[in-house]
Nucleic acid binder design. Sequence first.
DNA 1: TAAACATATGATTATTTGTTCATATGTATA
DNA 2: TATACATATGAACAAATAATCATATGTTTA
Lengths: 119, 119
Amino acid sequence: MAIGDVECCECTEVHEDKVKLLSGQMPGEDELCDLAELFKVFGDSTRIRILFALFRSEICVCDLAELLQMTQSAVSHQLRILKQARLVKSRREGKQVYYFLADDHVRTIIDQGLDHIQE
Amino acid sequence: MAIGDVECCECTEVHEDKVKLLSGQMPGEDELCDLAELFKVFGDSTRIRILFALFRSEICVCDLAELLQMTQSAVSHQLRILKQARLVKSRREGKQVYYFLADDHVRTIIDQGLDHIQE
DNA sequence: TAAACATATGATTATTTGTTCATATGTATA
DNA sequence: TATACATATGAACAAATAATCATATGTTTA
């Protein structure tokens, strides 16, 4: 179907009013994309494992690599993504950099996710 | 580094005890993957838009396509993913199939996500 | 039962993304 | 200041994935 053809089928008029109403209530494009980007960050088991580790305490990069049995580089790349999403923060102590959870949203979101899959 | 080389660097012994402790507390592989898979489903703006629409009321596939200005096929593919993740359910009414939210975890998770990005 | 409508789905393609490798940056210490 | 250590990052490659197209399935009605 060509772009610009509004209807995907013939049933458009069935709930035209409902669609119009909903259309006005949808969040803006920016907000939707930001939200999807945020959840994308949770959508990788390496990053989930990092977040679980940080539930207990802050931890430095090489300990994380050891814990997850991954290269320092791979862990560092993922930490960068977590940091850009403001899910973790870091502090330097000498040669080492310690990462920790940025706030409690992380716990809540993961807890809700656990609730869901355990149902 | 070859697989089997445990250390990524020389600092392993610095927090060896911490790593061991954490290692015993990490969730199982299955749980971690299920969780990541779940959040992957939230990590797409099309699916987020579908979920937002379902916040208001159940809605049929072609109305969703109209609302999102997408093809029926694309919407249907995404609904399948949402359904496999048990985030939505459906019921047939005549020729049309209505989708609706499976439970309240969806709202909670998205609300927490919104909280986070709006900070 | 045939035709029209609504939805589902397999195959293909373009894009995104996680890991690896090599290397750069930053910090401490001899 | 030279060296070693800890972390960060760019490029490349393989794997995952969202939209499209064509078509199949399921339902209603003439």
